[in-house]
Design a protein around this nucleic acid. Structure first.
Ligand code: MN
Ligand code: MN
Ligand code: ZN
Ligand code: ZN
Lengths: 154, 154
DNA sequence: TTGTTACATTGGAATGGTTCTCATCTGTTA
DNA sequence: TAACAGATGAGAACCATTCCAATGTAACAA
């Protein structure tokens, strides 16, 4: 079970979004807030086996889809065939390893401006009414660089 | 069948990448070069029914996966459940409609710098050896704005 | 040209992540 | 506390994609 602080925070988030507060939703959201491993449905289910031993897979999918609709959570693909989920409390983007699928959070000062500029330009050019964006950068994570015997500077 | 110019161009692309030149690969690549509709496997199969009436679905998947490995083609998801493919001859990114799934190409002067900067920052922060990136911007396309009766300025 | 061989194609079966169905349960509101 | 819209859960269904094994063929060298 997540900490009291996290449970209170997530309870408030659910209420703010006018989502019915069920134990399943509360616990799943708390899990996501306190784990930034970008879990799959399977990972979440395993991680919650103590708290929710009888939860159905459909409930996890339904819950996550609801969170995605409310922009609380984003979906990520890393090429392993299943969808990864990420609580999106603070803006960031992802670096994804093309070899092992590792997903890490990235942000830097000025990233928010880059993002805003991209959205503004896109609106002007395409006429779309922008609601969000995703940026992903691909490459080899440090461990895979070593594992594959690749030198950085050559 | 695509134009002679496209057939020559795609033939050269296949050779440059040391890919065995089969009719299937040649025709699929020519299709992608001359169609920027971001087709699915099904769309491609339909579009090629004249040229390759007996092509197997696995061949299209195999071929596209090969092209993706060689960075000739990128994969896109628009939420309709199937993967969309895009020949990536010139750098650009995508605006995706969250209502109807329409995918349009976007680029602007300076986009290349934005991209390079993002990759550079990511390499510094994450230690990843960067090989590429994807940027996507989400929103409502002009048609869906009208269809849904949403006003731009209010 | 021809032979060799590694690789590509095919159709069908298998896979597996996600959605669907529907009976049951429950959080919310009055 | 009653009523009900909405959520849950088990399993079936879905379907995009991959796997498999037999057949075909592009590329290369002699
Ligand atoms: Mn993240
Ligand atoms: Mn495109
Ligand atoms: Zn890695
Ligand atoms: Zn649209």
């Amino acid at each position: 079970m997540a900490s009291n602080a996290v449970m209170e925070e997530t309870l408030q988030v659910l209420k703010d979004h006018k989502l019915r507060v069920t134990p399943q939703r509360h616990i799943i959201l708390a899990y996501l807030v306190s784990h930034h491993n970008h879990p799959t449905v399977e990972t979440i289910r395993d991680g919650l086996s103590k708290d929710l031993p009888n939860i159905g897979a459909s409930t996890i999918y339904n819950t996550l889809n609801t969170f995605v609709d409310h922009h609380l959570v984003v979906e990520l693909q890393n090429g392993d065939g299943s969808t990864h989920y990420d609580y999106f409390g603070t803006p960031h983007y992802h670096a994804i390893c093309t070899n092992c699928g590792r997903i890490v959070d990235v942000t830097y000062p000025g990233f928010s401006d880059t993002e805003k500029n991209l959205e503004k330009k896109t609106a002007e050019i395409s006429g779309y009414m922008i609601s969000g964006n995703h940026m992903e950068v691909y490459g080899l994570c440090p461990e895979c660089q070593i594992k594959l015997g690749i030198k950085k500077n050559d």
